[in-house]
């Protein structure tokens, strides 16, 4: 569904990603874990065309290595950026409608919105509230709901659990599993390795810009090195 081959990213002199290759099969949840500054966000930004890169990216068999971010989103591959970048001065409803920017089938959009409201009833209750006044958990729901509005087949999420209370983290991961159950393929970047590995079908470990380990979620949960480095022994 999504295939990344030999990705390299440089920020000025910094070589942030070194020969990263990732493959995300259709309908699966794949996670990318790693310490701060390992290059997780850079990987997602490079895939969505927001930073310059070397290497190849294929989405649905199509080469999108040199496509613009707009074209990539329109093609059904959407990024939920780090730090829930919702639009604080727009209402929940308006935020969602912007998520459907690349579509122009009015009735289909209304249908998708109802579907998102059913997934997150709290968003329906707060449809006319400004995005910036939502709680952290609600903002994360909105960010995910907004991404769903374009009816993507792959969603990339950058640290959806960042800054959330443990109870909300659990909720967010349940939501992610529910979205996946609807048939959406997910590439998930997480610091919270334990929760991510538990729901992931496949996982990669990134260390200073390089993939050092990969395997199924269970394999990595059982792996001694992973336990020591990311799961606190």
């Amino acid at each position: 569904m999504l295939r990344v081959e030999n990705l390299d990213v440089y920020y000025g002199g910094i070589h942030a990603l070194k020969n990263v290759s990732i493959s995300v099969p259709r309908g699966k949840i794949v996670t990318l874990i790693g310490a701060n500054g390992a290059g997780k966000s850079s990987t997602l930004r490079a895939i969505s065309g927001l930073v310059r890169k070397k290497g190849k990216v294929f989405h649905d068999g199509e080469d999108i290595s040199s496509s613009s971010p707009e074209a990539i989103t329109a093609g059904g591959l959407v990024l939920v950026p780090e730090g829930r970048k919702i639009f604080p001065h727009l209402t929940v409803y308006e935020n969602l409608m912007l998520g459907a920017y690349v579509r122009n089938d009015r009735s289909g959009i209304d249908e998708t919105r109802e579907w998102v409201y059913d997934l997150f009833p709290r968003l329906r209750e707060r449809a006319w509230q400004k995005g910036g006044t939502l709680s952290g958990g609600e903002q994360q729901m909105l960010a995910l709901g907004r991404a769903l509005m374009s009816r993507p087949n792959v969603i990339m999420m950058d640290e959806p659990s960042l800054g959330l209370a443990p109870l909300l983290v659990k909720e967010v991961f349940e939501i992610i599993a529910a979205v996946n159950a609807e048939g959406v393929t997910l590439l998930l970047v997480e610091q919270n390795a334990f929760a991510a590995l538990r729901i992931a079908h496949h996982a990669y470990v990134l260390e200073v810009g390089r993939i050092v380990l990969e395997g199924s979620g269970e394999e990595l949960l059982a792996d001694g090195r992973v336990r020591e480095a990311y799961l606190g022994g």
Binding site: S48, L50, P69, E70, T73, A74, V78, L79, V80, P81, K85, I86, F87, P88, H89, L90, L98, G99, Y101, V102, R146, S150
Partner: peptide
């Protein structure tokens, strides 16, 4: 307004 609030997120919306 979306561009004003967050340009990266706006681009991610397509």
């Amino acid at each position: 307004k979306a561009i004003r609030d967050d340009e990266t997120a706006a681009r991610a919306m397509g």
